[in-house]
Nucleic acid binder design. Sequence first.
DNA 1: CGATCCCGCCAAACG
DNA 2: CGTTTGGCGGGATCG
Length: 434
Amino acid sequence: MDAASASSSAAAGPSSSSGAEPPAAAAVQPPKVAPLVQLQAPQQLQRGAAAASGSGGVGCRHHAYSRKQKSLGLLCSNFVALYDREDVETIGLDDAAKRLGVERRRIYDIVNVLESVGILVRRAKNRYTWLGFEGVPAAMKELKERALREMSGSAVLPPMEESSTANLSDDEDDEKLGDADEDADSEKLSQSMDNTSDKPDAPSCRLRSDHRKEKSLGLLTQNFVKLFLTMEVETVSLDEAARLLLGEGHAESNMRTKVRRLYDIANVLSSLNLIEKIQQADTRKPAFRWLGQAKRKQENDFMVAQPPARPSKRAFGTDLTNIDNKRGRFDSTTENKPKLMLGAGNIVKSFERQLGQGNKNDFVYGPFHPAVAKKQETGDHAVKQQERKSIEDWENLAVSFRPQYQNQALNDLFGHYVEAWKSWYLDLTRETSS
DNA sequence: CGATCCCGCCAAACG
DNA sequence: CGTTTGGCGGGATCG
C-alpha cells in the first residue's frame, strides 16, 4: 500500500537525447551532460566593483563540471542580488529562470523557501512579489507564535503513541491583529483547510488531496524554521531535524528523502544567512545554527562560480567551519540531542505577551532574566550591516530566555517532551481533520 | 567511502 | 486538453 510513489522507477536513464533543451552551449563535455557553463549575468546586472580582480573573463577555466556552480545556495544568492533592489517588486518565474540561466524547476525551489521566510509572496500564477528582507521578521514572528500556540495545545499528553489520534489541529493564522505592518503571508501556506460548507455536491471526497502540500518544500521549510525558533541549543543536524519533523515511523527510505530536501532548504537558508553550518564540537557531525537575522551577502555583484583560486569563504560548504561555539554553558554534557524548550505554561504565556506587545525588549521577566541577550559573533570578520530600524532580536532574546536547568532530572524530562512533540508534529504534518 | 545534493522525469494542480 | 507547479529519488560530486 503506501500509495505514494511506487511507480516512478523511471530509472533516470540519463540518455535523454539532449536535443535542444539547453540554450546555447552545445559543448558535449567529457563528463556526462555538462550542459552549459555560461551563466554570468546575461542582462545588465549591476557591475559595481566587479572587474577588479584580474581576469574579468568568467569561467574561462574550463574545469569540467562542478556542482558547486549550480548549487541552490549560489542560485539563491544570485536571485537575491538580482531582485533585492528598491524598485523591483514583481517577479516572473520564467523571467527569473532566464535571467539566472537555470531551469524553471530550480526557480520553484528557491521561490518556495523564500516565500516561507517572508521574502516573497505569491500573487498569482507565474507572479511573485518581492517583499525583501524586511518581511522576514514578521514571518518569523508569525511562525513562532503559531508554533508556540500549537505546542501548548498538545504538549503534555500522557502516553499516546501511535499516530492517528484525532487532534485538534489548530490551524491558521489569525490575520490582521493589530495592523501595524501589513504582515506578509496571506493566503496559501499553512496546512489544514477543511471545507466548511463545501461546494454543492461533494460526495465522498476526503481531503486526501493536499498530500502534495503536506510534503511541500515550503511547509517543510517552515517547520524546519519553527524548530529553531522553539528549541534551546541552537544547533541541529539535518538528521535530527528530519527525525523530529518526521514521525516516529522512521522509514529509512522516507528519511533519506526528507534529508535530501533538508539539504536543499539548508543551502538556501544559508545563503540568506539565516542559518550557518557548523561542526558540532565533540562530534564530527555537521549541524546548523540559527543566525536569525537575514542579511544579504555583503558582496554585491553576482558570484558566479568562482574559479579554483580565491574561494572567499562561501556561505558554507567550503572551508571555514567554526568549531561550534556553543554557549559557554556546561549544560547537557551527555549528548546534544535537540531539546525543546517548553516548560511551565507560564513561559509560554510570557512569550505570548512579549510577542503581542510588539517591541520594546526592556521588560524583565520573572525569575530567569535574559542571560545572554547579546549573542555577539565570535569576533569573526566584523561585518557591519546597517539594518534599518533593526527589527531586534526578539528572537535571540527568546532563545536565551529559557531558564537554564542545572538539574539533570529536568533535562531528562525534556526527553519526554520530545516525544510529545513528535506526536503533534506528526499530526500537524499529516493532518487528519475529521 | 559516506555525506552532499543536482538533475530532470513525470505526476498532481490548475486553468 | 495544455501549463504550471513541484514531489521524488537516481546517481554524480564532494570531502
